[in-house]
């Protein structure tokens, strides 16, 4: 069964349409990247999944039910939305204990998750004094408390150092490998390309793509063949479809083998013949360029 199902989901704040007619499924056993430029509606969508914001239209189900109908929801769903959204006066341990108790999770589990995220030795400290990295770890500890099958992370690597980023990436991959559902948002394609198996891309609140990572690259741009030759002009004339630059030719839609065969038959020498794969980043930029909320 699909873990999260959004159907024609919409959200309006006053005059702003934050999310428009969005439908998608998030499935278990893989990391699903939720990608979109700033202001695309990622956080809004996640808040609707968790029953925090009421949809203006459509619906979203978690494990087949509206979130509000889950008994002990934290045993099914764990989420990290905003790591700094905690009462700064409480200790890490008491913060987690209050969350655990509300869902009938034993207190021993609090110590377990504190160790798991590496906060065991600061458990008694007030969370107001935590660095962003520590807060992020505390937020993840809270998400893991109920040992949930479904996990949502909203921009979990924002503000983290490379060590922290690697840690979260490894954690998410591990959770998905255990068969859990991992739904993680980011506005950076480069980040998602290293973590996600599947991508849901939105722009201006609308669905742009819902595909696997390789498919996403293939769909949006095809890559090109780079050709260099001492007799470049003749090669260009022969291939016809190329785009001639001063020192190279850029060909789309013709394979390197075809170009090589043609030039060999014509007796033209080649200096370089390379297939340039499109980057995920380039594919993403191309897809979302029409839906950027704020363009510099």
């Amino acid at each position: 069964m699909t873990a999260i199902r959004a159907t024609n989901l919409s959200k309006r704040y006053g005059k702003t349409m934050a999310v428009t007619d969005l439908s998608f499924d998030v499935d278990p056993g893989r990391v699903t990247g939720f990608l979109g430029p700033n202001g695309a509606g990622k956080s809004t969508t996640m808040r609707m999944v968790l029953g925090l914001d009421h949809p203006s239209g459509g619906s979203v189900l978690v494990d087949g039910k509206p979130y509000q109908e889950l008994r002990h929801p934290l045993r099914k769903v764990g989420a990290l939305l905003d790591a700094k959204a905690v009462h700064g006066g409480r200790s890490a341990r008491n913060h987690l204990l209050a969350i655990a108790q509300s869902n009938g999770i034993p207190a021993a589990r609090v110590e377990e998750v504190l160790e798991l995220v590496g906060l065991g030795n600061v458990a008694g400290r007030r969370v107001g004094g935590f660095s962003l990295g520590m807060s992020q770890r505390l937020g993840i500890a809270a998400a893991l408390l109920g040992d949930p099958e479904i996990l949502l992370f909203d921009e979990p690597v924002n503000g983290l150092d490379p060590d922290g980023i690697l840690w979260i990436r490894t954690l998410m991959r591990g959770l998905a490998a255990e068969g859990r559902t991992v739904f993680v948002s980011s506005h950076l394609m480069s980040e998602m390309s290293q973590t996600a198996d599947h991508l849901i891309v939105i722009g201006k609140g609308r669905l742009i793509a819902d595909t696997s990572v390789p498919e996403f690259i293939g769909r949006s741009s095809q890559g090109y063949v780079l050709v260099r030759s001492p007799r470049l002009a003749e090669v260009a004339e022969l291939v016809k479809v190329g785009e001639l630059h001063t020192d190279h030719l850029r060909v789309t839609g013709v394979s390197p083998l075809e170009i090589g065969t043609m030039t060999a038959r014509a007796g033209l020498p080649l200096e370089e013949l390379t297939f340039v794969k499109p980057s995920l980043e380039a594919a993403y930029m191309e897809l979302t360029k029409d839906s950027l909320e704020y363009t510099s």
Binding site: G51, Q68, L74, D82, A85, V86, H87, G88, S102, A142
Partner: peptide, 16 residues
């Protein structure tokens, strides 16, 4: 204080 810090969201995720 829960609204000020945003902790209300954590509370409502736990007790929807």
């Amino acid at each position: 204080s829960e609204y000020r810090t945003g902790a209300i969201r954590t509370s409502l995720m736990a007790v929807p």
